[in-house]
Amino acid sequence: MAEPVTEIDVRFSAPGARATSWAAARAALESAQLSWLSTVRADGRPHVTPLVSVWVDDAAFFCTGPQEQKAVNLAGNPHVVLTTGRDTWDRGLDVMVEGAAVRVTDQELLTRLAAAWRARWDGSWRYAVGDGGFHHEGGDGPVHVYEIRAAKVLAFGKGANAFTHTRHRPNLR
């Protein structure tokens, strides 16, 4: 989501606060060690789970086994929210990516994503690419990979006199 339209919501921001820049929101997504993915079950109930994700080419990516609850949910409803941030109310930045999760099967992109996972976590997340997804190196598989096609990214800045509610939307011009 290169250079989105950025708007501050003054209703939920401190007086005089400035919008969180896209660069700051993107940096939070790029550096997050943990995110939480919210999906919707077939009966409408929410499902939230922690996971590791990567931000590559201005998009969020995550992966899951095809039998895991989030994959089952995505088969019926692709709408998700990926959340990251701090567990403090008075400092830091919380960022949410809202959009549709679309399965990635392109071999070249999967290879780049596997390298991103490996580099991001000092080799702790090692995937081999094949059969339209990932396999754990030396282990089981398959692992489905998803891209979140962002409809909007919300950034919530926290701090004394700096509470902000910023919306970043794709620039559709």
Rank of each mutant, 00 (worst) to 15 (best):
P4T: 12
D9W: 10
V10C: 04
V10F: 07
R11D: 05
F12K: 09
F12W: 15
S13G: 03
G16Q: 05
T20R: 09
S21P: 00
A27F: 14
A27W: 14
A28P: 11
L29V: 01
E30A: 07
S31D: 04
S31F: 10
L34S: 13
L34H: 15
S35C: 14
S35V: 12
L37R: 06
T39F: 08
A42P: 11
A42T: 09
D43R: 05
R45C: 00
P46M: 00
H47N: 05
V48M: 09
P50I: 08
V52K: 03
V52N: 10
V56L: 15
A59E: 14
F61M: 05
F61P: 05
C63D: 11
T64N: 01
G65E: 12
Q67V: 07
Q69P: 05
K70Y: 14
K70M: 08
A71R: 02
N73M: 01
N73F: 00
L74M: 01
G76N: 00
N77L: 00
V80N: 08
L82K: 04
G85W: 01
T88W: 13
W89V: 14
D90I: 01
R91H: 13
R91F: 11
L93K: 12
L93Y: 01
V95N: 04
V95D: 02
V95T: 13
E98V: 07
V102Y: 06
D106T: 08
E108F: 10
L110R: 05
R112V: 12
R112P: 09
A115S: 09
A116F: 11
A119M: 13
R120E: 08
W121C: 02
A128G: 08
G133N: 05
H135F: 08
D140A: 10
D140Y: 13
P142G: 01
H144F: 06
A151M: 07
L154W: 12
F156C: 12
A160W: 15
N161G: 10
F163W: 14
F163M: 06
T164F: 02
H165P: 02
T166E: 08
T166V: 10
R169S: 10
N171M: 02
N171A: 03
L172Q: 00
